[in-house]
Amino acid sequence: MAIKADVQLDVKGLTCPMPIVKTKKAMNDLTDGQILEVQATDKGSKADLAAWAESIGHLYIGIIEEDDVLLHYIRKSGDSEVVEKKFEQTITNEEVIDRASNGGFILDVREEAEFTFGHIEGAKSIPLGELEERLDELDKEQEIYVICRTGKRSDLAAQKLSQKGFTKVYNVLPGMGSWNSELSKEL
């Protein structure tokens, strides 16, 4: 299946160190939070791109193998990741499953690609950037547990929902980055 990415980079046919060098250059042109798809045939890129992302501090979301092509997904992270969280109603990772099974609703505001590579069973995906135009998909009467990777995007989303008249909104902390229970994938 196709995974949504903001920018595609074709490094098919290139060998080490070219996939890394080209990825680094392409990444310079992305803004924080955007997703880069790297299309590679170098088998070494499997381990290399993940290690590269880890070393720089970008999020390596995952890899798909299609025929002989490796599709890597990397989300650009910048220094702006560390921001104080403002939204006051919060619940913990541990609480969210119980609360959701009692009629609540888990809203995952990470990018589609991140969601695809692993999310909580039953969660709905609306990336933060699309939230405003998709509010009609949400129910004001239902409790909404907003989650992302670190609690930062979900904090912004919860603030936005609250401004739009949603009162039963909770930011889930610390978020999917520390999720230890089962995950669903859509690959």
């Binding site: 080490c16 160190p17 890394i20 060098v21 990825t23 680094k24 290399d48 590269w52 070393s55 720089i56």
Partner: peptide, 11 residues
């Protein structure tokens, strides 16, 4: 040069 460029690309 492979090690050097890979390291430079890793900032």
């Amino acid at each position: 040069f492979n090690i050097a460029t890979a390291a430079a690309a890793t900032e």
